[in-house]
């Protein structure tokens, strides 16, 4: 059975303990940040920040509500980073999505392809603006030794559940039912079916887009064959319209005129 994580955002207090635990366990350096007008700090995920509590303000009935989302790699079953990676560095390992740092060439394709904007390029050494791509590794070292991921272990609010994916889906559904019955009619279990099933799922109290998540995340290469076809058809149009008309037909007309003249 596949392991997974369920994060109940209705319980999250945005203490950012998970953020710190992630940095500590994975030995990630701190980043210099600045006040950019939000408690969300650092402002976004980076090669050194694999876990980030995002803050979203929801204004409803002249009241402002905060929506917290403990964002990280969601370990998709249909992972766009895996499908676009040209070297096989990004790969599915069991239920998890990992980037092999020794294979990665730092092309940045996964950075562009991820529907959640998760993988980030390392700042390059010296003047170079980018290095290899980094992201959450689901604490693969802990999980493969029967330990709970660092973020889940540290959460003081009980927002995290780590376990078998099937059981977590059942648990998430009961949580959603309870939320719907208690003043959150828009509650939703995010990740059950998205992209073939995510291995980090969220219990949301509002629509996904209000948390900065795509409502319908898209597999980057979902329509790649159609895109190839679109280019090939256009090449056909270019061949047929100007070139066939101007070069082939002219040639035929000239040949006909020559025959007529004889």
């Amino acid at each position: 059975m596949a392991k997974a994580m369920l994060i109940d955002t209705s319980k999250c207090t945005a203490c950012r303990g998970c953020q710190v635990a992630c940095k500590q366990w994975n030995d990630l350096p701190g980043e210099e940040t600045y006040n950019w007008g939000s408690y969300q700090n650092p402002p976004e995920l980076s090669a050194y920040t694999w876990k980030l509590v995002t803050f979203h303000e929801l204004e409803r009935d002249a009241q402002v509500r905060w929506l917290f989302l403990s964002m990280q790699c969601l370990h998709c079953t249909q992972a766009s980073c895996v499908s676009v990676c040209p070297t096989g560095a990004a790969h599915n390992q069991g239920e998890f999505v990992l980037i092999d740092e020794n294979q990665c060439i730092g092309c940045g394709y996964c950075v562009q392809a991820c529907p959640f904007g998760v993988p980030r390029s390392m700042p390059g050494i010296g003047d170079r603006h980018k290095g290899t791509a980094r992201k959450c590794v689901f604490c693969i070292d802990r999980v493969s030794n029967d330990l709970v991921p660092a973020c889940a272990k540290t959460c003081p609010a009980g927002a995290y559940q780590f376990g078998e994916r099937g059981e977590l889906i059942a648990l998430g559904k009961t949580k959603v039912e309870a939320l719907r019955a208690n003043g959150h009619p828009n509650a939703y279990l995010y990740g059950e079916n998205e992209l073939g099933g995510l291995h980090v799922m969220f219990v949301l109290t509002e629509a996904a887009s209000l948390y900065g998540l795509p409502d319908r995340p898209r597999y980057a290469t979902a329509s790649v064959f159609g895109q190839w076809l679109s280019g090939l058809v256009t090449a056909g149009v270019v061949a047929a319209l100007p070139f066939w008309l101007l070069f082939k037909r002219k040639e035929e007309l000239a040949a006909k005129a020559e025959r007529g003249g004889e």
Partner: peptide, 17 residues
């Protein structure tokens, strides 16, 4: 060319992979 095992021994049942 992928000489690291991880690049060519990725056996996966997950779609395109």
């Amino acid at each position: 060319i992928g000489l690291s095992p991880s690049s060519w021994q990725v056996v996966s049942t997950y779609g395109a992979a």
